[in-house]
Design a protein around this nucleic acid. Structure first.
Lengths: 201, 201
DNA sequence: TAAAATATTGAACAGCGTTCACGTATTATT
DNA sequence: AATAATACGTGAACGCTGTTCAATATTTTA
């Protein structure tokens, strides 16, 4: 068998990424396999590797799009200049996004966790974009004296991931959702108060 | 082949858990396979299932011991009653433990992340024990008015896991360690200040 | 039209967790 | 002591995985 030219290289790549996105969104990242994608698009497993380095690379491509979607939501925010209000706005958008696309977001997290995977430049760019939004929201908390905004954002971001990664034991599945929301809100609230309180013990 | 009685049921289980611990500690959780364990203890893969439900169960057993070790370290702490000092003490012990047993700790985290795995009661008990220590450390931050200590500890714990899970991109491998330490310290510092600042916006 | 380049395949590789029929060594019963 | 019952260990097998690659069919170029 050989060149079918049903699709160009770009079309095929698009097809692969779209299908992968669909599969992750509907069944979750662990259910994503090359053979499933291949079956769904009517190509063989091997063909996927003509268009993508490997499965991790493909997941990064999906994640990049997910981040772009989140960023689109985040840029809708109108900042007020009050760090607490604005941070709450960012958190609300973030929570909504998570709820709308739980599996896609889990895929982002799962990859963020892996130190071995080197993320493509374009993906890191999207991350930076959402960090920038978060930075704008919390910066006023430092007041006149300033501070390491980058560090503050990194920590808040990582912490949020933690809240949503660690699965609370001994809770009914139905309550996990609400509990995490509560935790996330408490985290942002407390953290921002801490930022306000500022340097010195 | 059949009953060899080289080891009793308990001895074999101990052997399996010990070997798994060794393999995780030296090669990391992803390298742990039933076949490797079997080879190392001179039994067949199938025999492991006589003594343990499945691989996840085995990992939980290993994690339980890891938590016990951490708790042993944590109980060495002499609390002063000042929340900032005591939290720093807890964090310091935690960081030291992480550094001494990075792979074992990663195994704990990897499992903490998975919502599908139901942890054994005995394991949850160990978690509770360290939570209790953390609770003792931060409680004074609430002052007279009190507050939801449980929520506060849950959030701090999850946040810490986040800081150590999310791998900072664009950093040299050598710096990741220091960066995380910095982040963890900033988190605890800021969070505790926030707790002090207390209710109300 | 012949030759070179390229896309696609599907079998193959090496690995994984887990299961299970089988046979043997130990234990219990007679 | 001889026999029956039980428990245990085995190793092959199942159904997966990501990835590679020789072979082949098609398209493009000469």
């Amino acid at each position: 068998m050989a060149r079918r030219s049903d699709h160009s290289r770009e079309e095929l790549k698009e097809l692969v990424v779209t299908t992968a996105t669909y599969l992750i969104a509907s069944e979750g990242l662990p259910s994503l396999t090359t053979r499933k994608i291949a079956a769904k698009i009517g190509y063989s497993p091997g063909s996927i590797y003509n268009v993508v380095d490997n499965l991790d690379h493909l997941i990064s491509l999906v994640n990049e799009r997910t981040m772009r979607r989140l960023n689109a939501d985040l840029t809708e925010i109108v900042m007020t200049g009050d760090e607490m209000t604005d941070s709450r706005q960012v958190l609300a958008k973030y929570l909504d996004f998570r709820e709308s696309h739980p599996n896609l977001w889990d895929a982002v997290l799962s990859h963020a966790i892996r130190p071995d995977v080197v993320q493509p430049e374009s993906y890191l760019k999207e991350i930076e974009a959402s960090f920038a939004v978060a930075a704008r929201a919390i910066t006023p908390a430092f007041g006149e004296r300033g501070g390491d905004v980058r560090l503050a954002v990194d920590v808040l971001w990582s912490s949020l991931q933690g809240v949503f990664s660690v699965s609370p034991q001994g809770l009914l599945a139905t309550d996990v959702h609400a509990r995490r929301r509560e935790m996330a809100e408490f985290l942002v609230e407390t953290y921002l108060k801490g930022l306000r309180a500022g340097a010195g013990r």
